[in-house]
């Protein structure tokens, strides 16, 4: 039962979502099988990274503003939130979240006579996404907070002089400048968030019906073949592609955020190393 490479791609390209061949490859372990299955797992990495990044962006803006607030009732909770998620390993956060979510009653929770289902929360697609969302929100909030504090004084004074206050001042002056200043650091955060998605199936969350991410399948191949020299470089290859794509998109946004500035004062994207959180 040998398959051509195209058949293999068809069989496994969407295996991570539960489509195609039900059984994972048990023999041959050809390059084609490894590339299709690991690539299929990348769907989950992109899913986690993209949604956590999008949702985290808005929460991060709110938390950064909260941390910048004068009232301690607003500031303290935001500081604690940031410390909690930045001060502990993501690995432990995943474990803890999974254990906590599993404890929710299986039958669901009664709220005002309505039964709210909770079992989906302990599944990776929801549970891990929530953890990643909160985690990236905390890291991003710290970046945005730093940017908020370094908005040029003149910009704010100019806003006051024009009579801008409250929401209008935030929307038209503070927010765009904060984004512009924070963008290089935020690009790094996005890259490392995508890297962090490889932890999902390695910590608490089990892969349902062997639907896992890229690293899950790579580990599967390594366990079967005892050969780390093929599957892990394949994951690395996919991640380098993903990183290059991200850098390109974020670079375009950065150019747009800086378009009003003279070319020599623009903020340049500079990749800084940071790893496991």
């Amino acid at each position: 039962m040998t398959m051509t490479c195209w058949e293999t791609v068809n069989a496994y390209a969407f295996r991570a979502l539960g489509h195609g061949e039900r059984l994972l490859p048990r023999e041959d372990f050809t390059l084609c099988q490894q590339f299709s299955l690991i690539g299929s797992g990348m769907i989950w990495n992109v899913y986690f990274g993209l949604l956590a990044l999008l949702a985290g962006f808005f929460l991060a803006t709110a938390v950064a503003l909260g941390k910048n607030a004068a009232s301690p009732w607003l500031r303290k909770p935001c500081e604690w939130f940031i410390f909690l998620f930045r001060g502990s390993p993501l690995f432990i956060q995943f474990f803890l979240a999974y254990e906590a979510l599993v404890l929710l009653p299986r039958a669901g929770i009664e709220i005002f006579g309505l039964t709210v289902q909770t079992s989906w929360l302990s599944r990776a697609w929801a549970g891990a996404l929530i953890v990643l969302f909160l985690n990236t929100a905390a890291y991003t909030a710290e970046i945005f907070h730093g940017a908020l504090r370094s908005i040029p004084k003149g910009d704010l004074e100019a806003a006051d002089a024009y009579g801008l206050t409250g929401w209008a001042k935030f929307r038209r002056i503070q927010w765009p400048t904060m984004l512009r200043l924070a963008w290089p650091a935020y690009t790094n955060e996005a890259i490392f968030l995508f890297h962090a998605t490889t932890l999902v199936f390695f910590s608490g969350f089990p892969a349902f019906q062997q639907r896992g991410d890229a690293l899950y399948y790579a580990k599967y191949f390594v366990d079967k073949t005892f050969n780390p020299f093929v599957p892990y470089p394949i994951v690395a290859f996919y991640f380098i592609l993903l990183t290059l794509g991200l850098i390109w998109i974020f670079g375009r946004i950065n150019a747009r955020l800086n378009r009003h500035l003279p070319a020599n004062t623009r903020v340049r994207l500079r990749l800084r190393p940071q790893i496991i959180r």
Partner: peptide, 20 residues
């Protein structure tokens, strides 16, 4: 070297590669 590649891959890869 380490940029662009999740470090967990390095951790998993190096230990086996080194051992072998």
């Amino acid at each position: 070297m380490v940029r662009g590649i999740p470090d967990i891959i390095f951790f998993l890869f190096f230990v086996i590669a080194l051992d072998q």
